[in-house]
């Protein structure tokens, strides 16, 4: 499983889970970082960190250590999984 900080600029991930302290996690979720949301890596700061993520039409900057605690999958993976499930059924 990948984490948000693994994604390169321009890549999109589907958010799976956040594992952060409750206060931070709640704050981030209210900003749109909720499971199933599509998160896009928009820019990196000139120094390489923090990184700007696009979620729900807005841009939010996070440091690497925060992004590391946010698990993501490739957006296609979910579709593929769903397709597999459908076939199995």
């Amino acid at each position: 499983m990948r984490v948000l900080s693994d994604l390169r600029v321009g890549e999109v991930g589907r958010l799976v889970e956040l594992t952060l302290p409750a206060g931070v996690q709640n704050h981030l979720m209210h900003m749109g970082f909720v499971p199933n949301a599509l998160v896009r890596v928009v820019h990196r700061a000139p120094a390489g960190d923090p990184t700007v993520y696009g979620v729900d039409g807005i841009e939010i900057a996070l440091r690497r250590e925060t992004a590391r605690s946010i698990r993501v999958t490739a957006p296609e993976a979910v579709v593929a999984q769903a397709a597999e499930l459908a076939e199995a059924v």
Binding site: V24, L28, V52, E59, A61, L62, R63, T66
Partner: peptide, 11 residues
């Protein structure tokens, strides 16, 4: 301890 940096960038 470090507090996470969370900043919304306006358009």
């Amino acid at each position: 301890s470090e507090t996470p940096f969370i900043l919304e960038l306006p358009q």
